[in-house]
Amino acid sequence: MMNKWEGIVLRTMPYGETNKIVTILTKEAGKLTAMARGAKKPASRLSSITQLFVYGSFLLRTGKGMGSLEQGEPIDSMRHIREDLEATAYASYIVELIDRLTEDGQRSSGIFNLLFEALHAINEGYDPEAIALFVEWKMLPVAGIHPVLHQCASCGSVEGEFAFSFKEIGFLCHRCFHIDPYIVRITPAQLKLIRTFATVPITQVGSLTLKKSTKQFMKKLVRQVYDEQVGLRLKSRSFLDQLDRTPSLLPPKEKPAESDE
């Protein structure tokens, strides 16, 4: 059966001397894996369409077993992501996270739209570290984790001072701090930011610029949830950790005005 679907390339793997196995997240049919014959040849008509991050239109032959990529037309090659080391690193982390948390054939327009919005934002020059945080928080429910962020996870209160609890996986109000001796105190601005990451679409946020310390704090929270509750280990995260330890690996950039509001 032949189908034409829009999709984004999540992963490629060489197969033999000239072929690639390509994993594509499609809008219509979920995640699919297909053989792209001859795609490793520079002159192949499938060469450009089987690059990581490419958003395109794919003609796939499907049936029993692995499908076959017959034709493809790039819609957006995500050129900036490919040319910028930091953008590449965070985009690689995002696609690996989504790839690992989705099953083949699992249809979800929400996940596809999240990936498209995230890559498009990074490609447009938005802070890739902040965009990755949006994806991390929004993918928690897909991983089976539903943090309580709209009220106290214990008593249901929506007023007072709040902290984040890894035990309750969500917010605790000051009346319930005793439930978890290892709570992480958060400011009202941090609480608002966590809710923004988890609930507000990337397209509705605009240009969000955050202090490095704020991003590191938010990253520590959400990744500890993944580590403790999901047990997910991603290869791309190791490189991001290396960039954090050695920022000199990145070329200097003009810094925008930072704000946590």
Rank of each mutant, 00 (worst) to 15 (best):
F53W: 04
L115S: 01
H178E: 11
A189D: 12
I8Y: 02
T209Y: 05
K253M: 08
M1R: 13
F197N: 00
R100V: 06
T196W: 03
K64W: 04
G105C: 09
L101E: 04
C173K: 05
I75D: 05
A87S: 15
K4I: 15
L115N: 01
T246S: 12
G110M: 11
K4T: 15
A257T: 13
R107F: 01
R245K: 13
I194P: 06
Q204V: 01
I131V: 15
G231I: 05
S109N: 12
A34E: 02
L221M: 13
P128Q: 04
I131H: 00
R237K: 15
L46G: 02
G56L: 11
M35N: 10
S157K: 11
S68R: 08
I81H: 01
A189Q: 13
R45H: 14
T12F: 04
G30D: 06
T199W: 08
R37I: 11
L32F: 03
L249T: 03
L59E: 10
M139K: 03
A257D: 10
E6D: 11
A118K: 07
P256D: 11
E161F: 07
R237I: 08
E17Y: 01
I75T: 11
G231A: 04
E6C: 05
R100H: 12
F112I: 06
K212F: 05
L32Q: 10
Q71H: 13
S207E: 15
I98N: 00
R100D: 10
M35L: 15
V205Y: 07
E228A: 10
Q51S: 12
R45G: 05
T196F: 03
K40M: 15
